[in-house]
Measured scan of single mutants.
Amino acid sequence: MAAGGDHGSPDSYRSPLASRYASPEMCFVFSDRYKFRTWRQLWLWLAEAEQTLGLPITDEQIQEMKSNLENIDFKMAAEEEKRLRHDVMAHVHTFGHCCPKAAGIIHLGATSCYVGDNTDLIILRNALDLLLPKLARVISRLADFAKERASLPTLGFTHFQPAQLTTVGKRCCLWIQDLCMDLQNLKRVRDDLRFRGVKGTTGTQASFLQLFEGDDHKVEQLDKMVTEKAGFKRAFIITGQTYTRKVDIEVLSVLASLGASVHKICTDIRLLANLKEMEEPFEKQQIGSSAMPYKRNPMRSERCCSLARHLMTLVMDPLQTASVQWFERTLDDSANRRICLAEAFLTADTILNTLQNISEGLVVYPKVIERRIRQELPFMATENIIMAMVKAGGSRQDCHEKIRVLSQQAASVVKQEGGDNDLIERIQVDAYFSPIHSQLDHLLDPSSFTGRASQQVQRFLEEEVYPLLKPYESVMKVKAELCL
């Protein structure tokens, strides 16, 4: 049975990233139509530049190519590739079939990587351009969430054990800070992308030097003109047959890092959902379990974690691919890159769409948070109580021993009897502590235990987050809708 299948058929496997999760716009960027249309555009740009620099290419040939950029006979191309065992030459023939007058000058002087690699770089750039505003929107939604809850005390956790208090907004800023680093890295790697350009079979530009009869300047002009037509500021000066596969490492490393950030955020949300302090959106008709109707599973956060793990592992592909590119190139890269580049971007696209949807509907339960604080705060307040007693004339050592005994009794009630923490009640009825009984409410005010959390939130948002989001103001209103 021949390899390949009808990918629109229910009898043929289709990647869930495309069929179930990723956005239509990201799927289109990695589609065959987008790819092969870009090949034709690159052939047109090459012909236009070659004509401008004096090669015998007519206006009629150029116009014929322009008129057929979208006229792609995919069936013919597939048949040609089956016959020739070469995808680029299959599309040269297919393009030439609908451009008979231009057929002889299509791909003039070029090698397969002229269309293959340059198209990949265009796709990487455009895919990054799709991700950047999506990530900015996630940051914006979380920034709104953090600002609104900047002063809401909550129990902090280290080692997932109760620690000092923080605020809900401050905790959210930990998430935002990681995503801001990801946004900066995505922008950097996007701006650092260079075009492969017009380089020939081993990167020496020998074929173009021959076409222009040894004119170095025209060869350099050709490279520059096509690079500018493709919208790049610069091209690699040095290439082998391909652009260095280190570029793929750079791009997928940034995406993998984004995956790590999203995994951490969504894990926190899942843990908070278990504590009943916070939940992701839950639709009115949504079913959490087929057997347990009360369940409210954090399905979206779980999906993000599941896909983020996949995204983090994909960076190993370009690392290994770059390491086995012998001399000017081997074909070890080809099949692998067809999979890992598309999957990385479709996965990143999915987790950003999902995280935006989550961040637009996060639900906080202040009463649950308050109750958990009441359970733990008495123990945390013991040092403040000791200091207040010393100020009232008591002995630190005597007070410490009193607190120690009462704390152990209260802990026994919590752990052995399943009761509430009654340390404060014990202190309130103990005559030894009568000098500070009137101060206990103040000493137990949760806001006095959150330090500068709310001020940190305000400063972080104003100095770091809002300036970073400013270039994306025009796209901030787009909502994230999930079908599944």
Rank of each mutant, 00 (worst) to 15 (best):
A2L: 12
A2V: 06
A3L: 10
D6Y: 09
S12Y: 09
S15A: 15
S15H: 12
S15C: 14
Y21M: 03
E25L: 13
C27T: 14
F28A: 08
R33I: 10
R33G: 10
R37E: 09
T38R: 04
T38H: 03
L42I: 11
E50L: 10
G54N: 11
G54P: 03
I57T: 04
Q61K: 07
S67M: 12
S67N: 13
N68R: 09
L69M: 11
E70G: 12
E70K: 11
A78D: 12
E79L: 13
R85M: 14
R85D: 00
H86D: 01
H86F: 00
M89I: 04
A90C: 10
H91S: 12
F95W: 12
G96V: 13
C98K: 10
A102S: 11
S112A: 04
Y114P: 02
G116F: 02
G116W: 02
I122A: 02
R125K: 14
L128I: 08
L130D: 05
L131V: 10
P133L: 14
S140N: 15
S151V: 10
L155P: 03
F157V: 03
F160I: 05
T166K: 05
T167E: 03
G169M: 03
C172T: 12
C173M: 02
I176M: 14
D182R: 01
K187E: 09
K187L: 07
R188G: 08
R190V: 11
L193P: 04
R194L: 11
G197N: 00
G200R: 02
T201K: 02
G203P: 02
L209S: 11
Q210G: 12
E213T: 15
D215G: 07
D215N: 13
Q221P: 03
Q221I: 11
L222Q: 01
D223G: 07
T227D: 01
K229N: 04
K233D: 09
R234E: 15
T242W: 05
T244P: 15
T244Y: 00
V247P: 02
I249D: 04
E250T: 11
S253C: 12
S257I: 07
L258N: 08
A260D: 02
V262R: 01
K264L: 04
D268K: 01
R270K: 02
N274S: 12
L275E: 05
L275D: 08
K276T: 07
K276E: 05
P281K: 07
E283A: 14
K284T: 13
Q286N: 01
G288W: 02
M292R: 01
Y294S: 01
N297H: 01
E302V: 00
R303Q: 04
C304S: 09
C304Q: 07
S306W: 01
A308N: 05
R309Q: 04
Q320F: 10
T321D: 00
T321G: 07
S323C: 12
V324G: 07
D332V: 01
E343G: 12
L346F: 12
A348D: 03
A348E: 07
L352N: 06
N353W: 06
L355M: 12
E360T: 10
L362N: 05
V364P: 08
R372V: 03
I373V: 10
Q375G: 04
L377C: 04
L377I: 12
P378T: 07
F379C: 03
I386V: 13
I386Q: 08
G394Q: 06
S395D: 14
R396W: 01
C399R: 02
C399H: 11
H400L: 05
I403F: 07
I403R: 01
R404N: 09
L406A: 11
Q409A: 12
A411T: 11
G418R: 03
D420M: 05
N421K: 04
D422A: 05
L423G: 02
I424D: 07
E425N: 12
I427G: 04
A431T: 12
S438H: 13
Q439E: 14
L443H: 04
L444F: 14
L444V: 07
D445C: 12
P446L: 03
S447R: 12
G451A: 06
S454A: 12
Q455L: 11
Q456T: 05
Q458V: 13
R459C: 11
F460D: 01
P467R: 08
K470V: 10
P471W: 15
Y472E: 15
E473L: 13
S474Y: 15
M476S: 15
C483T: 15
